[in-house]
Design a protein around this nucleic acid. Sequence first.
DNA 1: TTTATCTTTGCACACGTTTGTATTTGAAAC
DNA 2: GTTTCAAATACAAACGTGTGCAAAGATAAA
Lengths: 336, 336
Amino acid sequence: MQKRITIKDIAKELNVHHSTVSRALRNDPRVNVATRDLVLKYAQEHDYQTNMNAVQLRGATNNTIALIVPNINHTFFSDIVSQLTNIAYQKGYILSVFQTNEDFAQEVGIVSTIIRQNYAGVVASISKNTTNSNHFSLLKTFGIPLVFFDRVCNDIQTPKVLVNNYDITYEATEYLVNKGYKRIAHLTGPTHINVFNDRQNGYIDALKKHNINYQKKIVIADEFTVELGKSCLVNLLSEIDKPDAIISSSILLTMGIAVQAREMSLQIPKDLALIGFGNQLVSLIIQPQLTSIYQSELEIAEITFELLEKMINKEISIDSNCTRMVRAGIVYRDSC
Amino acid sequence: MQKRITIKDIAKELNVHHSTVSRALRNDPRVNVATRDLVLKYAQEHDYQTNMNAVQLRGATNNTIALIVPNINHTFFSDIVSQLTNIAYQKGYILSVFQTNEDFAQEVGIVSTIIRQNYAGVVASISKNTTNSNHFSLLKTFGIPLVFFDRVCNDIQTPKVLVNNYDITYEATEYLVNKGYKRIAHLTGPTHINVFNDRQNGYIDALKKHNINYQKKIVIADEFTVELGKSCLVNLLSEIDKPDAIISSSILLTMGIAVQAREMSLQIPKDLALIGFGNQLVSLIIQPQLTSIYQSELEIAEITFELLEKMINKEISIDSNCTRMVRAGIVYRDSC
DNA sequence: TTTATCTTTGCACACGTTTGTATTTGAAAC
DNA sequence: GTTTCAAATACAAACGTGTGCAAAGATAAA
């Protein structure tokens, strides 16, 4: 392992001052073309790589954007990662992804790391166990642009990209009601997260509007797995007034329900209607194909990046509180 | 946005020298307990965050490990990400994930970024379009530990964690032969990648051993999508000697085949046997459930991290060329 | 030849932190 | 009161790069 080559090494070798080398490397017009080419050639041949720590120490920023997600395993988030990676790359940035694993302590640690390095900006969707937002406001304190998407901290003034979860759940519920289902259950996540709270309210309000008094059937799942989906269905069916339809907030829970229904020889949609958030491959693979709620990960990524880039370029303030809404939609298939 | 607080700010405020503050923050015994507590208290209250650029400029390394993957969307890789994130966190590191999107230029850019910052180490699986490994050897030049997993560059001396693709594909092929299938096709990826090359060789050798002369039915897919899987099956079935079994190298291709078969009213496994790499949720959801080849992402992640950590701690050389093999297995279900 | 103007290069300091060495302080020993 | 020693703190240099300013060198105008 050889020592890292620096601007001073090049300068010494070429008998010029290191400031000349510095300028040459950045195509400063103040340096003679001949010497510039000489420097560039030497740098190229000797694999010179800028030491960004030195550059950033002088106040410059990274060309790296940090993306914080709860769980990269969930299709929604991995799709966001993919889209955002591409957009960022096209715009000259590099995207660096961090997974909190739904763990508050890890989230705090990650934000801390991001602050200690000089990232250009941060895109985040918070963990289920995030109890306070001090670490995120710290980002703002240090002047690092922050955009939330999907799961957000409401008590912090920063741009947010949301999905119209209330509306779409209202619509989905109403759709089931109009199809004749009366005992509609809702399987969702912890309601201290805006996403699940909005969905629950949409569900409740839709039932209210249609004077259906079945609103107690809300099951809060603390984790999203197929197993939990299966046991949820078992529990729901063991009660006196079994549901005849379920709106599920997670694709894995939905799959659990579908699999369990199959194992119990329940017919979908005859015995049980099913409509789930997340329009992924499995929704098409499973029989019957599932009526699903889709969200455009591309659109979310685009808007999120657009806001972040504007913050980085000081076109909008770091304290801006603008909220952008992305519309979800329903893909009608055979499970209702 | 307030100015970032530094060690010197604290020093000035507390009327001590900044070197004392520096020592206090790192619990150096040479500083008085009283002043230490004073410093720590002040730092805490004013949200002091170490400027890692300054620290790293002096030669120190990050506590961050970079993970480079072709595509975070593929379950195999997102599982690796999850596992590796957890392991790294437990060991006091933070994992930062980069997606190359199977693009060589992006891969080069990412490696360059990693070098310019001072990452503690790199874990990588190369892109499909990686034509040379200069950028990776540059990592070694700069003394940054590198471990390859799954898809590797063979021409570079560094630890590698591989899956026994040859053996398992041989085994899978033999299994189909023993089940009575004679016209076994193989749907796989570009064979300049070790993974697909190994699988293809396992397939070919198994057929050879059993004197089956059907080895021309190898289809190289340049991308892994459901759509391509579907069209591949259409093409294969349009030929004279149609296959009666397929070994597929990608879960998405496998799904495409299964969906197309369903649409053409082909019975699996009666009309067509199917065995695919990747044992994921969809393999269980689809009917009939698929016989699949699984690889332990946890085991791969563990071994990879173990090797990387040893390199970081100088327990093994940065030029070590050790190769560790992880065993894949077959889950027997209903598609053969 | 002298003066003015422009091009090119060199110099020195700053960024925030760490660390070896020097200095100060205070107390104990003589 | 002076010396000795240890504890605590201050000083200074270094890491690699960028940049305002000064200086030198070259060219053109007078």
